[in-house]
Each structure stands twice: as C-alpha cells, then as structure tokens.
Design a protein around this nucleic acid. Sequence first.
DNA 1: CTGAAAGCGCTTACAG
DNA 2: CTGAAAGCGCTTACAG
Lengths: 335, 335
Amino acid sequence: MATSADVARLAGVSLSTVSYALSGKRPVSQETRDRIEKAIAELGFSPNAGARALASSQTHVLGLFVQFLPDEFSPAMLQYVLPITEAARSAGYDTLFVTEADGPHALQRIASSNMVDGVVLLNVAHDDPRLPILRNIRQPGAMVGLPRTTDGFDVFDLDFAESARLLVDHLAQLGHREVVLITPNEHVYERGYAYAWRFRDAALERASRHGIRVFSYPGQTQQPGLNEQLNRILDERPEATALVVHNDAAIAALPAVLHARGVRVPDDLSVVGLYSEDFGRLFSLPYTAVESSPDKLGRSAVQTLVKRLNKPETEGHVLELVVPEITDRGSTRAV
Amino acid sequence: MATSADVARLAGVSLSTVSYALSGKRPVSQETRDRIEKAIAELGFSPNAGARALASSQTHVLGLFVQFLPDEFSPAMLQYVLPITEAARSAGYDTLFVTEADGPHALQRIASSNMVDGVVLLNVAHDDPRLPILRNIRQPGAMVGLPRTTDGFDVFDLDFAESARLLVDHLAQLGHREVVLITPNEHVYERGYAYAWRFRDAALERASRHGIRVFSYPGQTQQPGLNEQLNRILDERPEATALVVHNDAAIAALPAVLHARGVRVPDDLSVVGLYSEDFGRLFSLPYTAVESSPDKLGRSAVQTLVKRLNKPETEGHVLELVVPEITDRGSTRAV
DNA sequence: CTGAAAGCGCTTACAG
DNA sequence: CTGAAAGCGCTTACAG
C-alpha cells in the first residue's frame, strides 16, 4: 500500500501539501496539485481510514442501531435501513450496521471506541434503554421513534395520533358508526413502543367524539393464528362496517382472509390502514391508508445528524412529527 | 476520553503492559492485571478503534456488500444480512453495510482505505463486476452466489440444480406429467444471476428424462401484473397438474390467486417451490419446498472468512454448494 | 503558496 | 513478568 509519504516523495512535495491537496483546507497551486494527482494515480494511493480517524478524530462512519425483536414482522425494517445508508453515503458517510440484541451495550461499545462520528437509533421505545447511553457518549445521535423525553435528541417520527384522527375522520364522514380496530401485537405495547398507544388512544378519543363505536383488538403475531383471529373478530362483529388496521402483519394477511370469507372491499366492508407505499406494493395491498414514510423519516434523521456533525455547536434539537397524509386507494365507501 | 497512557499512569505500569493485559498476547501477573482493570474501570477507558487499526492493521470490521436492484423483491435480502451481522459479531467483528449502486467502486473504495479486514459479497452474479476488484484488494472475501469462476474465492450457494432435480423427482414419483414452472423474472437472467438458469435448466433436463412436459414462464415483477400473469398461465395450461415456483414474488402471490380461482392445493393442483422457512412464515406459505437456507449460507460465508483472517496463509478455497432438502408441507399429491 | 514537525493512541519487536 | 521506544499513516497548528 502506498502512503501519503510515497505520494509526497513522487510528487516532490511535502507530506502536508499532499494532505492539504486532498482535503482542500489550504490553497494549493494548480501545478503542485497536478503533480500530486498524478502521483496518486500512479501509486493507486488511497488514504488509510484508521490513520485519518486517529489524526482527525473523524471516522466518516455513522452507526445504525437496529433492534430485531423476536416476533417482529421484519420486512418493514429494511424500508428504514436502506434510505438511511443511502442518505449517509450521499453525505459522505459509511454505515456501521449494528443489530446486537443488547442495544445499550452495543451503543456504548461502538461509541466509546470511537468507531463512528454519530449514531442513528431505530425503533426507539418510550423508555428506550439506549437513551441514557446516548446522553453520555460524545457522538450526537438522531432517532426514529418517539421516546418519553426528547430533549437533547433529534427525534423523527410519524404523527401517529394525527394519523389515527385522519383515518377516523375519513370513516366518520362516510357515515361509519361501528368500526373494528386492529392494533399492534400486545408485545409491542409491553415493549413500550409508544406508536401503538399513540395511534390507538387518538383513534378511540376521536371516534367517541364522532359517536363511533370502536371494537379494538391487538393483532396476533404468528400465522396461522393471525388469520384465525381475523376471522373470529369478523364473526364477532358483523355490525362493523369498517376496519382500521394498524398492524403490518394483519394488513398483509387481510386480502386473503377477506377473500376467503367472500367479503368485498369496499362494497361489504370499508378498510383503512397505516403502512408505507413500498410495503403496500410488496403485498399488493389495495387499501386506503396513511403513508408511514419510512424513507422520509430515515433520510431526515441522517440529514439532521450530518448537519449537527458539521456544526457541533448547534443547540436546539429537532422534534419532527411527520404530518400524515392519506393515500386514497378506493377501499372505503359511504354507508 | 481516557487513553491507555492514562490507564498506565493510574495503574502505575507501562503503556505496553496495559496493551498486553488487554490483548493477552503476553503474560501479565494477576496483581498488575487487577490494577490495570481497576484503572480501566475507574477511567471508563475504551481503546480507540482508529489507533488500534493503525497500529495493528486490523479493524475488526467486515464489509457487507449488497446490491439492491430496482425491481427486486427485497424482503428476502434481510434473511441473509441479519445472520451475517450476527455471525460477524459473535466472531468479534462489526459490520459495515454497503449498499451503493456502484458496487465495484464501493468495494474498491472501502478496501483500499483499509476500513475493513475482509468482505462478504451478496447476490453475486455469474460475471460479477465486483470480482475483478476483489481479486486485487488486500482483504480476503467470501461470497454468497455462484460466479463463473470461483478460484481464489470462498463461495457459498445453494445447489440450485440439485434443488430443481429434487422437486422434479418428487413430482415425477407422484405421477405428474404436465407441469408449469415459474422462474425468476427475466431481468434476473439479464443481470446474470446464475441461480435462475441453474435451477431452470436442471428442472427441464430432469423433467424430460422423466417424460414430464414443462411449461416454463419467467414471472412478472410488479403487481398487479404478476397476479394477472399467474391467472393467464393457469388459464392457458389447464392440463398442468403441478406448479413449480422458483420466484419469491410469485410464490407469495400464489395463495390469493389460487384461492380466487377456487383451486384447492393439493386436491386440484400440486405446488412446490424454493424458499426459506422464514420467508414462508412471513407469507404463511403452505407449500412443500426446498429450503433456501439463507442463514446457513450467510453464516458459513462469515465463518470461513473469519477463519481465513485468523490464518492468512491458508490456501485452498472453499466452494460449498449446500445440499438441498425438501420440507414437506403437504401441498402435493399423486395423480 | 509550501515545509518541517508534533501529535493522534495504540501495538509490538527489542531488552532486560 | 515488565519497560522504553519505535512506528503505524495521517492532520494540523506553527513558520516562513
């Protein structure tokens, strides 16, 4: 491997000039720049990341901390991960992908060994055990998911409460008065993922204001249990004219279940949900839904983090709750 | 941040002793070890990764190079990625997740800047443009996917040809003589992913030996086109008594399509496929299938790579074609 | 516009 | 069993 000393020698300049030609932090005359570039090309030189990190205290790597939970419905995860690595790269950062089960420990380890300049936390829970760590490490962090206290952090999430209100209002306008709500699995509540109750509570509150009766059920995790459960619920609530589904696994299972029952959407039943366009395409979901915008959330988190890395003094943290929008796919009708 | 010099001072030992106590590369007496550990705990010391990499030429990071193609069915990808990061971590490595569109360039960049000790390449094509790069970088690499020439590489893949034969034999034994084969999308062939034709060609060859007629179709990528195509094929081939599906999107779409047509499996139609258990669970697929073993392949790639990192002199590269096994889910019957 | 030199925080022969 | 020192390959004040 060629080093910058080799380049300097071949170009007939000093080590520092090579470094400055590369970083642009000091003006370098066109001629010397040319000679240096020629030498770099000739030697196939590429600066050593470790040395650079040691000298500059910058790794140009971001840590992406994800938690894959036992009975989670995982395909949704990739929708956050990919936009994040892409946004990072276009900002000049590579991504260290960390999936350790012990999230706090991993965060501490990676941060204190200075492997990354900043971190992005995914699936942040209401009382996320990684947050106390994040508060004490040197690196700034951005997160997707709304924790109990957000001060000191850059936080990005969908406005789940408003999403619920939008969907309930939509059904209310169409005259629905009996609605089944499928919420995330109960483990999601137990693990303290606030999006679950933020959506549910707002939906219930709004529904009661409209005089709508809501039958709420946390969805099952596993098949075939989930399909059986959906059938049971539909048997139990023949009076329901609409279904609100805030549960990826359930919404993916729904087309087959409804088809098997001979239920036509929206003629026999109106259906609305909350999922991303990509997810909908993956499962060919034909339902009117609030777009969950994983790509937008991931990208915003990275961009804010990078901005903060570039001006470390920046105070004033960001709390961005993405305003939900309904994508009408024609799965509802008036009753 | 405390440095190892701080630890040495506090413990009253030399810098080198701290380093050796940490690495275990030299015996250190119990008393000094205790003093050092106490000092480390007191200072919250954690070695600097950049300095360590610079001094030792080892990063303890593996590069994971994945290509996300435009019209790919992505949920399958995570099944490889997760076992790889987990296997890496249990071997003491972190994972740099690289998804750049320009794979060869990214590989060159990451390798020549010495950010990683070794690389894992995913979705390797027959003439993968990353392979010439891999040949020239200092780091060893392992891959999942079978390229044209494997010498000099550690290669892991499912034996797709044998998989096809197993499935065809299974159907032949049950007396099927007219079979529809759904293969990967034609873009997959164009991009040179050998698994597509390795499976198809072996299936056709074996079928002809059994006197089985095969109607072969590359699947569509997008919905609703895919469902329409599946219906068209089934209309066109009423004489077919069995379906062989080597296409993730198609197999995921199949239950709904068959249900809509009132086709019962296996009473009206036998169905076999090739997919992983996880994938099957995700989509509740009830089909007898060859297990594609993404976790096993990913883990093996990492383990072999790590072994090679530990003894760099090792010659003799590995070419492991995983022997396929059928998981019988009762979706076939005799005709 | 350019150079010489210190320093980043470790590892690892070399010595004893 | 332990220490003193060189060196890994950069960046960045300090000087001119």
